[in-house]
Amino acid sequence: ATNIVSKVKWYNSTKNFGFIEQDNGGKDVFVHKSAVDAAGLHSLEEGQDVIFDLEEKQGKAYAVNLRIK
């Protein structure tokens, strides 16, 4: 899926990962520091509106092509 609009559930800049809620009630989506860095960001804030693409690797959903709404 591409261009999903949602909100950051939480992000831990010390552990370099977090999760984004899915508005459709699906499972929370993992977001890694590499996606945050690629977006030119230093961190994410809880409740922040984001747009991302969903990529599945080894049966897990990852946020990629992250951008701020």
Rank of each mutant, 00 (worst) to 15 (best):
N16K: 14
F30R: 02
Y11D: 02
N65S: 04
D49Q: 14
N3C: 11
S13A: 13
A63W: 03
D49H: 14
D49M: 15
V64N: 05
T14V: 13
K69W: 12
S34Q: 10
I20G: 01
R67A: 05
H32T: 05
K57I: 11
S6T: 05
F30E: 02
E46L: 11
S34L: 11
A63M: 02
S13Q: 11
K60W: 10
K27M: 10
L66Y: 00
I68T: 11
A38H: 08
V31T: 01
N3M: 07
E21C: 15
A63I: 04
I20W: 00
Y62K: 09
E56A: 09
K15R: 12
K69I: 15
L44H: 01
V50Y: 03
Q58T: 08
K57W: 12
K27Y: 09
Y11A: 00
E46D: 10
L54Y: 07
G18E: 00
L66A: 01
L44W: 02
G26Y: 10
D23F: 15
K69V: 14
K57H: 12
R67W: 04
L41Q: 06
I51Q: 08
F19S: 02
E56Q: 12
D28Q: 07
G26S: 10
G59H: 06
F17K: 01
V50E: 01
D53Y: 04
F19R: 02
I4T: 06
G26N: 10
Q48T: 09
K60D: 05
G47I: 02
I4Y: 06
D28L: 07
F17R: 01
D37T: 14
F17W: 07
S6Q: 05
V36C: 03
Q58M: 13
A63E: 04
D49I: 15
A1S: 12
G18T: 02
G40E: 07
E56T: 14
K9A: 04
A1H: 13
Y62I: 08
D37G: 08
G18Y: 03
V50D: 00
K57Q: 10
G47R: 06
T14Y: 12
V31C: 02
T2W: 10
S13L: 10
L44D: 00
V31I: 09
V31G: 01
K69R: 12
F17A: 00
G26L: 11
K27S: 10
I51A: 06
V29N: 02
L41D: 03
K60I: 08
K7C: 06
D23G: 15
A35L: 04
G26V: 09
N12L: 07
K27N: 10
K33L: 05
Y62R: 10
H42M: 12
A39W: 03
V50I: 14
K69S: 12
E46I: 13
Y62S: 09
T14Q: 13
N65G: 03
Q22E: 07
V8F: 00
G59M: 05
F17S: 01
I68L: 12
W10L: 03
A1L: 13
H32W: 03
F52E: 01
L54W: 05
K33G: 10
E21P: 04
N16V: 03
I68S: 09
N12R: 09
F52S: 01
K7L: 04
K15Y: 11
A61Y: 15
K7N: 05
N12P: 02
I20N: 01
D37I: 15
W10Q: 02
V8D: 01
Q48M: 13
N24A: 11
S13N: 11
K60A: 08
F19W: 11
F30D: 01
D28H: 06
Q48Y: 06
V64D: 04
S34H: 09
A38R: 11
T14F: 13
D28T: 04
D37K: 14
S13K: 14
K7P: 02
Q58Y: 14
E21M: 15
S43W: 13
E46M: 14
A63L: 04
F52G: 01
G40C: 09
V31F: 11
K15F: 11
A39Y: 03
Q22G: 15
V8Y: 00
A39R: 03
E55K: 11
E46W: 12
K69M: 14
F30K: 01
Q58E: 14
V5I: 12
G47V: 02
S43H: 13
A38D: 08
R67C: 06
